[in-house]
């Protein structure tokens, strides 16, 4: 399936969840917030939210350094 992730078109395997997406980009355990089609998704729902063709997703990493 094709989605728009952080402004770029990307191809991902069908049936991926948001949790899989976070893992896919090696950000598991990192402080990450995800906006899906204009809505910020509750972190606890990452596992259950299955990504759909055409989704517009923004994945933001909250970085630690200062």
């Amino acid at each position: 399936m094709r989605i728009r992730l952080n402004g770029k078109d990307v191809s991902l395997p069908d049936g991926m969840t948001l949790r899989d997406l976070v893992r896919h980009y090696d950000l598991d355990g990192e402080p990450v917030a995800i906006e899906r089609n204009g809505q910020i998704v509750d972190r606890q729902a990452f596992e259950a939210e299955v990504i759909q063709e055409g989704d517009v997703i923004e994945m933001v990493r909250f970085v630690g350094g200062g």
């Binding site: 355990g29 990192e30 990450v32 910020i40 972190r43 990493r61 909250f62 970085v63 350094g65």
Partner: peptide
């Protein structure tokens, strides 16, 4: 990354990140 968070108006840090894992990331 940066955000201005206002209690009651915007999400708070816990709304955005949960209590999530916080140990062992890039510094």
């Amino acid at each position: 990354t940066s955000a201005f968070l206002r209690p009651g108006r915007t999400p708070c840090l816990v709304c955005l990140l949960g209590h999530g894992a916080r140990v062992g990331h890039d510094t």
